[in-house]
């Protein structure tokens, strides 16, 4: 009898069509025009950018559309040192949670424009937009966030949003 087979390759491939939903469609259309749109929960008044359908705290539809600014505060971050497939950024780089001014939930994005070891909680940042003609209907419409030059935000200003 020949050797026992130890393992087999069984790749799985499934094709889908993702749909963005009504609110995210508005968000993606606006981001191409350099605008950031969110939605406000009618119950707890929190503003979600990007919008996410129902308010996860209250379980009700977020109704009012709210425009927020493209400046914000780094609430927390990590420094990526690990190369991986499909990587486009030069190592090391910083991936951070950015609390946009006017929003209540931070969004994840890249931080550039300073050395990785200079990035800190409370750092004030501004969106670096892709040139208008090249802006995709995705978060990549913003290339990254970079220091705005303002003094750091106080811990108390973002402690509820970590």
């Amino acid at each position: 009898m020949s050797d026992v087979v130890k393992g087999i390759k069984v790749p799985v491939r499934l094709a889908y069509t993702a749909i963005a939903g009504r609110d995210m469609t508005r968000f993606y259309q606006a981001i191409r025009e350099g605008k950031l749109l969110g939605r406000r929960c009618p119950s707890c008044r929190k503003v979600y950018v990007p919008p996410r359908g129902p308010c996860p705290t209250c379980g009700v539809a977020t109704v009012d559309e709210v425009a927020v600014r493209d400046t914000g505060t780094v609430t927390t971050f990590c420094i990526v040192n690990v190369p991986y497939e499909g990587q486009t950024m030069k190592l090391p780089y910083v991936y951070a949670m950015v609390l946009l001014d006017g929003a209540d939930l931070p969004l994840p994005h890249l931080v550039q424009g300073l050395e990785a070891d200079q990035v800190r909680m409370g750092l004030r940042v501004r969106a670096s937009w892709a040139p208008e003609a090249e802006r995709p209907a995705s978060m990549e419409a913003i290339r990254w966030f970079e220091p705005s030059g303002e003094p750091d935000a106080s811990y108390d200003s973002y402690r509820e949003h970590l």
């Binding site: 499934l14 889908y16 996410r52 359908g53 129902p54 996860p56 705290t57 209250c58 379980g59």
Partner: peptide, 20 residues
């Protein structure tokens, strides 16, 4: 999750419940 192709989609669905 396989239906929509989004891992942990059932966690996202909790947004509709308001799990707080």
């Amino acid at each position: 999750d396989y239906l929509c192709g989004r891992p942990f989609s059932f966690v996202m669905a909790l947004d509709a419940v308001g799990a707080f």
